[in-house]
Design a protein around this nucleic acid. Structure first.
Lengths: 415, 415
DNA sequence: GCTCTTTTTTTCGAGCCTCGAAAAAAAGAA
DNA sequence: TTCTTTTTTTCGAGGCTCGAAAAAAAGAGC
């Protein structure tokens, strides 16, 4: 049962709606907000004046074009960058990149650390995250949220890292541990979900309510946007596209099972195949981007084994997308990351396989986009996740908790 | 953009919440409703008295136990069965079952028709549906909705039947055509989704916010409940579990492609395999339930080929569930329909395969339930879909459209 | 430079809705 | 018959949105 709705909720949602409209538009006059939100002028006036009073928004310096029209000029308001800030951390293989962003999403400070993720203890891993966050926070008092993206499987509540290829430890409780230290909400998220979130912010035209972002690197990850929402599993972050079954009882996967898509399309799998190794050989721990580039060049210049390896990878991905499309059809598809450097070889194989599936009946029409760099996307996704979280959970509810309390106290003491 | 919330919406949702609470509970006093909805006594009092005035609810004849406690006795209210009614139609292979249900979901009248769905023209198919609905409606004026469940793929808006194994016609526009005739909202839905909806109403304890219902008959269908909502594709009804790929380039499926799960686990596939036919042989049009029962008995009494056929089917289903669980983990699983008669043979094979997938890591723990009869489930699902639709869309919005109009007219004419 | 027109923003009163407290209602208990 | 207990209704207060009117802030015209 959802529970009833009161005035408080109504105001909260309308406030959040206004904030969201301004966040999307960048700058916005009250009249425009009214049009965007379908609320009346008077309501917008009231909400906007509250938000300005609370310093969540501020009047925008009249930027560029004042088209010199007749009538009272619109005064644009915008998010106040100092209203809040958030820390975004991305933990991936041998790398920790963190950033402090202001309330508008602009990066204030950045910090990158190399480490050997496979060799580091669970304690150290969490300590490293904590010290990075601490140094970014410094003595700021307006940091309201931390978002930690990790390569791997997280729980659906955003508390823990359940399993990851980058560390031998399971159930790493980043969320609770860091919340304890900093007294802030900490959200742990799968990196591919953050990529999907970022893409939607970058280009809402192309990446609208439905699309899938597939990250091709060591492992295969996926972020799925369905009906305008990030799709997550019921217990875990879900969307483990790389571990759908491609060949029952097939090649050995890094996860220890057999026949996963990743066991054909992960960089280690391509490397294994191209070097003529057995599909049951233990995956190598790390494949350098340069090696993969070289392999792609081999394939292009006619090396049969290399070509075959990429074809097999493309086939696995294509059939996988086909199975995914049988369940839900999230066109377009975006391929992200290192794997995109070989897209000229992969894409034909993907489309060939896709065309042979029920889900991919109109395979020709399915747009497949590419994005080379995943790290900036992950960070931007974290930032927007943190900030919209602040919008909805903190700035949405009217900031009158104290005022209200004060008022009722006043009333009582007067009476 | 969702658009802002006004008082009207607030009341609408709270009314819908009250109706939903009463629908779930059967009978309910105002005090209980207040507790269930977390709204105040006064609000419930107001809403309840409106709903009674509008004859959407009625006072319940004090059913059984009046536990003779002190104090003013609770007066229970319940849905007024005559507030509305709905027509539910289920079109499946060679069969059309329809029912008229009252606002409480009780069947008032039923009508079943046998036909040869494969041989009937598109026009005739729609005419048959229309005449069945017409005869059920009779001269009632409180029929507010029609829900048509079909075996096959429907569009996500619930307007059309896009593709179905039971008819050669594609894009059959049941929705618009019937709406045109009867002037009522008509919703076209996939049968497995209706099964999932029904199971949730039947046993919300067991089938809660997350579960998957898999229908094993000629084809393989699935209804997926995720986070308390029926999962549908973005363009089509989605959840075409049967057409996820089991073996790339594998056995011939009824859909014309190769290697779909259905091509191993549909009754025609089991029949084909058990009779030693080639996996590329054209699927037979129809397999009688009796044949399948006989086949299962053969397998039980040691017929190798039959046993192998069922094992292969179980394996396809198991790996499919594993792939599904990689994306999302909707435990428990319910197997529905004819296929359940062979569950003693299928289940071990399913679990063996499932255990070999990443998604099914805890395969032992995943509960697999069975439900033999699908038709009653589909009909009940249609009924609840129709009725909750009426609750939300028609009875939720305050019934004061005319009153308001009248009022404002009065005011104006007075002024 | 002053007035007129146009557009945006704020203000104000009305109406709707929820809530808490008090009153009313409807029983059993004494 | 009166007291106690529990449910339901009533009533006034407060919060929120809305439409209409007023105020504000420009350019246009002379």
């Amino acid at each position: 049962m959802v529970g009833g709705i009161r005035h408080y909720e109504m105001r909260k949602r309308n406030r959040a709606l206004v904030i969201s409209a301004v966040r999307k538009a960048g700058q916005c006059s009250r009249t425009q907000i009214a049009r965007l939100t379908d609320l009346s002028q008077s309501t917008i006036s009231a909400i906007a004046s509250d938000l300005l009073d609370e310093k969540i928004m501020r009047q925008a310096g009249q930027g560029e074009a004042t088209p010199a029209r007749r009538g009272r000029p619109q005064v644009a308001i915008e998010l106040n960058p100092e209203a809040a800030s958030a820390v975004c951390v991305y933990l991936s293989f041998n790398n920790l990149s963190a950033a402090l962003v202001d309330y508008c999403g602009r990066v204030i400070e950045r910090q990158d650390t190399r480490l050997s993720t496979l060799d580091v203890g669970q304690r150290e891993l969490m300590d490293l995250a904590a010290s990075t966050i601490r140094s970014l926070i410094g003595n700021r008092d307006n940091v309201l949220r931390v978002v930690l993206a990790v390569q791997g499987i997280t729980d659906s509540d955003g508390h823990e890292l359940l399993w990851s290829p980058i560390t031998p430890h399971n159930h790493v409780p980043f969320g609770p541990a860091l919340e304890e230290i900093f007294g802030l909400p900490v959200i742990v998220q799968n990196d591919c979900n953050m990529i999907a979130a970022a893409l939607r912010w970058h280009d809402p035209q192309r990446y609208g309510d439905n699309f899938a972002a597939i990250l091709l690197s060591d492992g295969i990850g996926m972020g799925l946007m369905l009906n305008g929402r990030l799709f997550t599993g019921t217990h875990s972050s879900g969307g483990e596209f790389g571990h759908m079954i491609h060949e029952p009882n097939g090649a050995l996967c890094r996860c220890g099972r057999q026949g996963c898509i990743e066991a054909y399309a992960g960089t280690y799998a391509i490397w294994r195949k191209a070097h003529g190794r057995s599909p049951m050989e233990e995956p190598v721990a790390d494949t350098e981007p340069e090696h993969m580039g070289a392999l792609a060049r081999c394939a292009r210049s006619g090396d049969e084994r290399a070509l075959e390896a990429f074809n097999e990878a493309g086939q696995a991905i294509g059939f996988g997308i086909g199975s995914l499309f049988a369940l839900v059809d999230p066109a377009p598809i975006v391929i992200v990351g290192q794997g995109t450097t070989a897209m000229d070889i992969l894409e034909p194989a993907i489309r060939r396989a896709l065309a042979r599936t029920a889900g991919g009946q109109d395979a020709v029409d399915i747009p497949i986009e590419t994005e080379r760099e995943e790290i900036p996307l992950v960070q931007h996704g974290c930032a927007m996740t943190a900030l919209t979280g602040i919008d909805n959970d903190i700035f949405g509810p009217a900031q009158r908790a104290e005022t209200n309390a004060a008022r009722s106290v006043t009333r009582k003491s007067v009476a």
